[in-house]
Design a protein around this nucleic acid. Sequence first.
DNA 1: GTAGTTTGTGTAAAATTTACATGATCATAC
DNA 2: GTATGATCATGTAAATTTTACACAAACTAC
Lengths: 242, 242
Amino acid sequence: MQLEQIKYPGQESVPLTEPFFHMAFSVDCVIFGFDGNELKILLIKRGEEPFGGYWALPGNLIYLNENIHDGAARVLRELTGLQNVYLEQVETFGTVDRHPLGRVITTAYYSLVKIADCTVFAQSHAEEVSWFPISKVSDLAFDHLEILKACMQKLKKIVRGRPVGFELLPPKFTLSELQRLYEAILEYPMDKRNFRKKILSMNILVELEEYQERVAHRPARLYKFDEQKYMRFLEEGFSFAV
Amino acid sequence: MQLEQIKYPGQESVPLTEPFFHMAFSVDCVIFGFDGNELKILLIKRGEEPFGGYWALPGNLIYLNENIHDGAARVLRELTGLQNVYLEQVETFGTVDRHPLGRVITTAYYSLVKIADCTVFAQSHAEEVSWFPISKVSDLAFDHLEILKACMQKLKKIVRGRPVGFELLPPKFTLSELQRLYEAILEYPMDKRNFRKKILSMNILVELEEYQERVAHRPARLYKFDEQKYMRFLEEGFSFAV
DNA sequence: GTAGTTTGTGTAAAATTTACATGATCATAC
DNA sequence: GTATGATCATGTAAATTTTACACAAACTAC
């Protein structure tokens, strides 16, 4: 990416001759997924300078005539093919030297997705797209590691304030899978009986008359989320009133 | 503020002839204070177009060569004289049409301060500076009302996850004052005895051998915060573990 | 059919939350 | 100086929530 090469639709509407601000604005997407055991994150391998060949968060500059939230959705789609994911803003990173080619301020968005439902393919300046276990991510382009860490902190906070799982698990799942998800996010083990008591008391799960098949042990009962109740929880959150 | 008039130090370091992005980046500060009864917010009356004569959040464009966090501190100081306040980022607002003169993306910062300790005076494009009860704020420049509402939501969340008060109350205060603060933020009444039990059980208060004076009723005991313990709470937050 | 693995379940103790009412103490007005 | 009005300070019992903890049941693979 060279600064001179940047051309965006919509720029015609503003007089280019008028020097305004010599800066750019970008978005970076932190897409979390869960494979049943580990928390994973979607990364692209950059095919352009700077940081060519590095793995990075899917991100790019936004157009002059698009809202940043729309820009985040577009950038994610253009780089990875991912569409229709619910993106939520996390934080804006604006240190002067975070981009080697000039002043670029970036806003991080995160999302939770079911890996199995995602068809991803590298496009645009992405040379590859791949899911990485978060425990194995170490070296990323720009300040993307810092951004990732901020998003993980955010995710830990979120999971304490509202249920997660609907966005990350397959439609039918076992309580142990749900527990593994919580443990993967919060990074500590939980008591099986207490976890079940707690999650069932929320009344967001529907017990199915189906069980696991072809497993080398006693098969577990499958559950699904009660979407209505789940969504109500999302809006209201838990209340931690004094 | 006219676009053509914008001149910032540091711009020399980048070739102005190279058209890059026709956009600007600003910060807006939401400064909360408490007068013992009501939650208040610091506003400026704008002395420049656009929105000349409107009340607004203290905000302005940031320099090309300053970090956005530093920019927030500078802008606040330049408009209101306020210094050395702890600013925390809340959210970035980036709809295309939020600024009538062009594409301006803004990041909101908030802070909690003791009104009595603040000497504020209007400077730069601020014609006046004043504290407003949040309940009486209705018409603000730009999308500042939306930004204010987002910050109030944030404040409500924050107060559930960690103590507040140290930043907002005078050094010595009564438990009723502290309770009124919580009620002002959360906007619901609390039981006096239960509030005291809860706040005292946190062990962040120090009981003083001093009492209110010149009040037309039985004088209340004064307390102060145990700064060490308070700060530890701030870092760790409450834990809402499953 | 046996070994290996994961599922599913209950209870008692401890801790926390909630609801609720009255006498004490000061300034002020008379 | 005494009555009034206002706020302060305080405890408890019931309900709820949280925590710690162990073993038989059900399935596959061999």
